[in-house]
Design a protein around this nucleic acid. Structure first.
Length: 580
RNA sequence: CGGGGCGUAGCGCAGCCCGGUUAGCGCGCCUGCUUUGGGAGCAGGAGGCCGAGAGUUCAAAUCUCUCCGCCCCGACCA
């Protein structure tokens, strides 16, 4: 490609809307242009990176037996009603009517479509297991997109779906996909992607993992124990919280005028927050009961964990609803409440603590010396708190720290949520109808591009790994008018291309500074510079974008040498990937 | 959806508070000459419905109202 003809203008100034470097480079380097909030067009450099990533995805999906298919962006309402998600999913799912008034949706994920596609094609156990995948456009009407291509409304996703006759087979295949994902990220040049336990959210299913690229700009908080290698999304992270056991003292009611918050009560009584119990009401569990979650006063409820326990979305309850069950907001307690009307869920930290301060369900009064096993026996206890930095890792091998990460991929063991609701069945050996068990596996292509940019960059631009770089070699010619420069550069351009390399040739008669600035923005790993001063010695200059190393080499050897470097660089990356 | 900020040339911004001929600056772009190793210099030029609509006024980029869009924080998030 000749840079003079490359569509898209690069520029020096940082766009005002970009807060992330990757977003700024995306625009400055003319990789992409925004069309509307969370909706982008890709220019040639951006699309070339995307195509490279897609090739890796196809190769690795094929390698684990995947078969590529293509499903539609637009689907009829009925399909989503079969799974129940037409109702259960919020406004991220775009709903609209076609000209005949038929309700349609824009696909945000394709479990419905894939079950629709496969349920009539599968009739025998002999056809299982199998996996189909696609690289296709998704539309999710996110409440808030941000960060260039990190979080957008319309995006390309590699989504894969596997079908199995048994949970064991799903688990076996899940591990294969897990490893395929590690190879994919390694081949894309981001082998440091961390795998964390995650919540399966609205996808359903039990086991799920997220593949996180740890960068400061990340949207998710990742809980890490460096000593043991423990990694989990904050949403599901478990930790060992320090307990302070002591001898139980007799329960006592004390006057605490106007003390409604933990801070007020603890301050008034002169105790630390950890010596109190915090009562938080939510509306409501799956049976419609008001939920009272109680955690130690120095801790917060992790609503993701709570959601799993109550099998519903925890919404903070109104004061009216709280009063309706006989509790007093600000002075609420689990004691004395009608358990038929309120579901009480106590965190393990409260169960493990003695002599806590808790509400008396009476305005301006609290109990002190509350002991769960004595004062409220038989109540449900479990882990519903959010871990904090400094907590001990659940494996006891070190303490937890928080990092930020971007979720570039995820894998789920879905179970039978879709196959059952949508009536997919096959006959087993005995001729009995059985429901296949599903797994699903996603990777956001544009997000991976942006994340890689975020992970590898300097002040001048991105530093692409060779396997996803828009071009492999950037060729500059300094002072085209000087004797031999233009001819030599043209010959080198032709020679590199003939050797099968992807070359971007800056054929403009621009000053060196301008050429180099553009080269940095395009982030191509290897750069060659033809100039009068080196040409006199029969030499051409080379420079690596990543290490900054540079030197000169004989012009006659340039093509073969660069080709060798590139092949070696690719081989090094693939060797790492093949280790998985 | 809540809070905050911003819409003036492809990009970055000034002008607005305090209304007044033809709306400025830098980068980029076009022409010419000079220049050529980290975003060159000089000269000449092109490019604007000042986000949209409605008001107030002799007069609106500037004041008022409504709407739209974008960014950031939060809520949300497969």
């Amino acid at each position: 490609m000749r840079l003079s003809q490359l569509v898209g203008s690069r520029y020096k100034e940082r766009p005002a809307e970009a807060t992330l470097d990757s977003h700024a480079f995306l625009l400055r380097g003319a990789y992409a242009r925004q069309v509307a909030n969370g909706i982008y067009s890709l220019l040639p450099p951006g699309l070339r990176v995307v195509r490279k990533i897609e090739r890796i995805l196809r190769e690795e999906m094929d390698r684990v037996g995947g078969q590529e298919v293509l499903m539609p962006v637009v689907m009829p309402r009925e399909l989503w009603e079969e799974s129940g998600r037409y109702q259960s999913v919020g406004n991220e799912l775009v709903r609209f009517s076609d000209r005949t008034g038929h309700d349609m949706v824009l696909g945000m994920t394709h479990e419905e479509a894939v079950v629709h596609l496969c349920r009539n094609e599968i009739s025998s156990h002999a056809q299982l297991p199998f996996m189909v995948y696609q690289l296709q456009t998704k539309f999710r009407d996110e409440p808030r997109s941000r960060g260039g291509l990190i979080r957008v409304r319309e995006f390309t996703m590699k989504d894969a779906y596997s079908f199995h006759a048994s949970q064991e087979d799903l688990e076996r295949y899940y591990m294969e996909c897990y490893k395929a994902y590690q190879r994919i990220f390694a081949r894309a040049g981001v082998p440091q992607v961390a795998v964390v336990e995650s919540d399966s959210g609205m996808m359903g299913g039990k086991v799920a993992h997220e593949f996180m690229l740890l960068v400061d700009a990340g949207e998710d908080t990742i809980v890490v124990c460096e000593e043991s290698g423990y990694l989990a999304n904050l949403e599901v992270a478990k930790g060992v919280v320090q307990a302070y056991p002591e001898e139980p003292k007799p329960l006592e009611k004390v006057h605490t005028p106007g003390c409604k918050t933990i801070e007020e009560v603890a301050g008034f009584l002169g105790v630390e927050a950890r010596r109190t119990a915090k009562a938080v009401f939510y509306d409501q569990d799956a049976e419609g009961k008001l939920v009272l979650a109680i955690v130690r006063g120095d801790r917060d409820v992790n609503e993701m964990k709570l959601a799993k326990v109550i099998k519903a979305e925890p919404v903070p309850a109104t004061d009216e609803r709280i009063r309706a069950v006989g509790a007093v907001p600000g002075f609420a307690s689990a004691m004395g409440l009608d358990r038929a009307r309120v579901r009480i869920i106590i965190d393990d930290t409260v169960a493990a603590s003695n002599n806590l301060v808790t509400g008396a369900n009476e305005a301006d009064y609290h109990y002190i010396y509350f002991n769960l096993s004595r004062d409220l026996p038989g109540v449900e206890t479990c882990d519903i708190i959010e871990v904090k930095e400094g907590d001990t890792s659940i494996d006891g091998k070190g303490s937890l720290i928080f990092k930020r990460g971007i979720e570039v991929g995820n894998i789920f063991q879905l179970g039978v949520k879709y196959t059952e609701s949508m009536g997919m069945a096959y006959n087993d050996e005995a001729g009995k109808a059985c429901t296949p068990i599903m797994g699903c596996y996603g990777i956001g292509v544009g997000r991976l591009m942006s994340s890689a940019m975020e992970a590898y960059r300097d002040q001048y631009g991105p530093i692409w790994p060779i396997t996803i770089a828009p071009w492999q070699v950037h060729l500059n010619a300094i002072k085209l008018a000087a004797p031999g420069v233009a001819d030599t550069a043209e010959q080198l351009y032709a020679g590199l291309q003939a050797a099968g390399l992807e070359v971007l040739y800056d054929d403009r008669d621009a000053r060196p500074g301008a050429q180099f600035a553009d080269a940095d923005l395009l982030g191509i790993p290897f750069r060659l510079v033809v100039s009068e001063r080196n040409l006199k010695e029969g030499q051409v200059e080379w420079k690596r974008r990543d290490t900054g190393e540079s030197g000169v080499m004989p012009l006659a050897e340039a093509v073969a040498t660069v080709k060798g470097w590139i092949e070696q660089a690719i081989a090094d990356i693939n060797a790492k990937a093949d280790a998985y």
